[in-house]
Design a protein around this nucleic acid. Structure first.
Lengths: 337, 337
DNA sequence: GTGAAAGCGCTAACAT
DNA sequence: ATGTTAGCGCTTTCAC
């Protein structure tokens, strides 16, 4: 792309050996070199506009200072904050993040991860919640560093960072129960997603515990359309009455909004709705959405931290970090009439 | 990260020279080698689980197959679609995108671009709308490939991809004029942004052309808060009456929503509001927002296409691609009462 | 404290 | 059609 200035160029001008320039420019090794020489070399490097070639360095040191981040879809608004969290931890430490979107497709994911490995990423942050556990075990035996985020899976041999899904669902149901609701729907995410399973499972447990009637409706994706379609289908079948919906995430809750509206049902007058994630703009929906806040930025930070920590202490146990969530009460939930 | 299988390993097992393996595995050069040998080598490579080392290849070929993408902030919902558009063009062609967030800070941007260059990116896609034109000229003379997207600047020596800002503002004003509005506010984005300038400029021109009263309010950022703050300040000063707001983007329009509400003004009964971008969820706001659709995904695709095309025909003129926009009429605009 | 030399994994010119 | 060789830009032993 450009006639770059190399270490050898600097060395030539400075009248020293490339090795000396390398040592001088690296803060780690500059104490091996005469202070005066360091100063001189630094000066010349600056004058020439020398910039290190990270690629060449990586080839030699076997570290690319690059982390692969695998997410389902960047346009799902929970991921940008997560990615920025990752970035905020990595950048000051000299790492860059290479982001890929799997679109929830396991085959695509495998292809993308392979391309990340070919690019010699030092580790992987995986935020795709579906299957592929075999693949992960394989990676682990091959010595690939990774951290899971926003997904939970008992068999996975890697550290995991999640929001406290169970506590979130519990808080949601308790809030609705306090408002007098007894007949519940859970609009559950796709069943191949680990978060879906936990949320649905907790929903069932909590309904039982509190003596409430809970019914689970499955959706095919964590999207507005999937939520609307599933809800439409349910409402078209003249279901037994219900007054509360606990959605698997905010997108599904929004789909429920749409469906309720087209069926002449008002939220929250007829039906209370709770989302999950507190993604951007939930406060601007009609009505402003009661939802469970999940600290996605912090999840990203934590995932990055756990990954880099693996580089130091080789054999760390696969820790599991659960970040606290909190119920954000807005206007989509109301007293049962 | 792992005991990788190298080209030399494959060569040794196959009983041939590394060069031959390289040629056999590269579709471009495999015809230089005996079909039978290619088959054998391919087979062995597969068995050994060989994966090419993109970093080493890049060092040798002086192409990293990596593109740097500089955006202000991934959590601004217009950028994920743009990034995915870029990705959709790059990935099938073997390129990866390295995304960095400048947060609208010129100094940060410079640091980030430098780090991208150190990583030997083959080119840059720059979506930050503010200054730095000197820097860009400098890059250009140094032979750095780049494309500007979502920013317009007469002096910049690079191809540019934008939405048709002027047409968007015109359509917005014509729509409002047809509804009988005569007193307008333009909530303009920060003045160091090129899109802000064009939108504000067109606003002035169009008001004049149609004989309308237009007033510009400047904001400090393209954010909800900045929109709300600017609007609050304006409304607190008991301004001369107005019935239409043309916002610089959807975030500012949303800020205006908030401000109007706290000042007891109803949208669209008292004031019509138009946004810009048609970002995700504008249809779910209260009221659903009339806005100008900008094809961000396509802008990303086009930017990537223009960048790669530079790699082929060296001296292409700095083309300027303007993508069509369209007014999306929803419920935040109504007849003047 | 600094130089010399090897080599990370790959490709490409030059041989044969 | 394939082997040989050099070298991309850097770090890091090993000398001195």
């Amino acid at each position: 792309m450009r006639n770059r200035v190399t270490l050898a160029d600097v060395a030539k001008i400075a009248g020293v050996n490339p090795g000396t320039v390398s040592r001088s420019l690296n803060p780690q090794t500059e104490n091996q070199v005469n202070k005066e020489t360091v100063r001189k070399i630094r000066k010349i490097a600056k004058e020439l506009g020398y910039t290190p070639n990270t690629v060449a360095r990586g080839l030699r040191t076997r570290k690319s200072l690059t982390i692969g981040v695998v997410i389902p879809d960047l346009t799902n608004p929970i991921f940008p904050p997560l990615v920025r969290g990752v970035d905020s931890y990595l950048l000051p430490r000299g790492y860059s993040a290479l982001i890929v979107n799997s679109d929830g497709n396991v085959d695509t994911e495998l292809v993308l991860i392979n391309s990340l490995m070919e690019r010699q990423v030092d580790g992987l942050i995986i935020a795709t919640g579906h299957g592929g556990d075999e693949m992960l075990k394989d990676f682990h035996t091959r010595g690939v560093y990774a951290v899971m985020v926003n997904r939970e899976s008992p068999g996975v041999p890697y550290p995991t960072v999640t929001g406290d899904d169970g506590a979130g669902i519990s808080a949601a149901i308790e809030h609705l129960a306090a408002l007098g609701h007894t007949e519940y729907i859970h609009l559950a995410g796709p069943s191949d997603s680990s978060t879906s399973k936990i949320r649905a499972h907790t929903f069932t447990i909590e309904c039982k515990r509190l003596g409430l009637n809970g019914k689970i409706i499955k959706t095919t994706a964590y999207s507005i359309e999937a939520g609307q379609t599933a809800m439409d289908k349910f409402l078209d079948h003249k279901p037994s009455p219900f007054t509360a919906i606990v959605a698997g995430n905010d997108l599904l809750a929004l789909g429920a909004y749409h469906s309720l509206r087209t069926h002449g049902l008002n939220c929250p007058d007829d039906v209370s709705v709770i989302g999950f994630n507190n993604m951007p703009f939930t406060n601007d929906f009609q009505p402003p959405m009661t939802t469970v806040n999940v600290p996605h930025f912090d999840m990203g930070v934590e995932a990055a931290r756990l990954l880099l920590s693996q580089f130091e202490d080789e054999e760390s146990a696969p820790v599991k970090v659960t970040l606290p969530v909190s119920l954000i009460i807005r206007e989509s939930t109301a007293l049962k009439k």
